[in-house]
Deep mutational scan, measured.
Amino acid sequence: ETGKELVLALYDYQEKSPREVTMKKGDILTLLNSTNKDWWKVEVNDRQGFVPAAYVKKL
């Protein structure tokens, strides 16, 4: 879809709370919100949640 910003997972991340999502290094995720410098909201496999901003980079 146009207008979607994507990020690349630089590291594996295992969710530690229900508000977070698990990702694997190399995953491409849809970026939903990056206003917080530490935690970015992403969508992966129809799930939305937060990942550490340092673990992903914008494509």
Rank of each mutant, 00 (worst) to 15 (best):
A53Y: 02
K25I: 06
D38S: 11
L10T: 04
A9R: 01
W39Y: 06
V7P: 00
S17A: 08
K16S: 10
L8R: 09
E1L: 09
S34N: 08
K4H: 12
L31C: 07
S34V: 07
P18N: 10
S34C: 12
D27F: 05
L6I: 08
Q14L: 13
L8Q: 12
K58G: 05
K37Y: 08
L10C: 08
D38Y: 15
D38H: 15
E20G: 13
E1V: 13
L32G: 01
E43Q: 13
F50D: 04
T35N: 14
L10W: 04
N33H: 07
T35P: 04
D38G: 09
F50P: 00
D12N: 08
L10Y: 03
V51A: 03
V21P: 01
L6F: 15
D38N: 12
M23E: 00
N33E: 14
K25N: 04
Q48A: 11
L6C: 11
E5F: 12
V42F: 00
V42S: 00
A54I: 10
A9L: 02
V56D: 00
T2G: 14
L6S: 07
K25A: 13
K57D: 06
I28W: 05
V44I: 15
F50R: 03
L6D: 04
S34I: 06
K24R: 13
R47I: 07
P52H: 02
R47L: 07
D27G: 04
L31T: 01
K57N: 06
Q14Y: 15
A9I: 02
E15Q: 13
T30P: 15
V42Q: 00
A54L: 11
I28F: 06
P18L: 09
K25R: 11
S17M: 08
K24N: 08
A54R: 15
W40L: 04
T35C: 14
V51G: 00
K58S: 08
D46K: 11
D27E: 12
Q48M: 11
V42M: 02
R47A: 06
Q14R: 10
E43M: 11
D27V: 05
S34Y: 08
K57I: 15
D12P: 06
L8I: 15
K41N: 06
L8M: 14
K16R: 14
W39F: 07
R47K: 11
F50T: 03
L32Y: 04
K25D: 02
L8T: 07
V44M: 15
Q14T: 14
Q48V: 14
W40N: 01
V42T: 01
K37H: 12
K37N: 11
V42I: 07
D27C: 07
T22I: 03
E1Y: 04
E5C: 15
K25L: 05
M23T: 03
A9Y: 01
D27M: 15
G3A: 14
P18W: 10
K58N: 07
D27I: 04
L32D: 01
A53F: 02
Q48N: 08
R19W: 15
L10N: 03
V44W: 08
G49K: 02
Q48E: 10
F50N: 04
I28A: 02
N33M: 08
A9N: 00
M23C: 06
K4F: 13
Q14D: 14
G26C: 10
V44Q: 15
P18D: 12
K16N: 10
A53E: 03
V42A: 01
A54D: 09
L10P: 00
I28V: 11
L59S: 04
E15L: 07
K41L: 15
G49D: 00
F50A: 02
T22R: 05
E5H: 12
P52Q: 02
N45Q: 12
K37T: 11
A54C: 14
L6N: 06
T30K: 12
K41H: 11
N36P: 05
N36R: 09
D27A: 08
Q48D: 06
D46W: 07
G3R: 13
R19F: 12
Y55F: 12
R19C: 15
S17R: 09
G3D: 12
A9T: 03
V44K: 15
G49H: 02
K57Y: 10
E20S: 07
R47H: 08
L59W: 09
L6T: 08
E5N: 11
V56P: 00
A54W: 09
A9D: 00
T22S: 15
K24C: 11
K58M: 11
V7F: 07
P18F: 08
L31G: 00
D46V: 06
L31D: 00
D27K: 04
T30E: 10
L29C: 10
K58T: 08
G3E: 13
K57A: 12
W39I: 03
Q14S: 12
F50Q: 03
I28M: 06
Y13P: 00
V56Q: 00
K58V: 12
W39C: 07
E43S: 11
K58Q: 08
T30D: 05
V51T: 02
G26K: 02
T22Y: 04
D12G: 06
M23K: 01
K57V: 15
D27R: 03
G3H: 14
K16E: 08
A9C: 12
L10K: 05
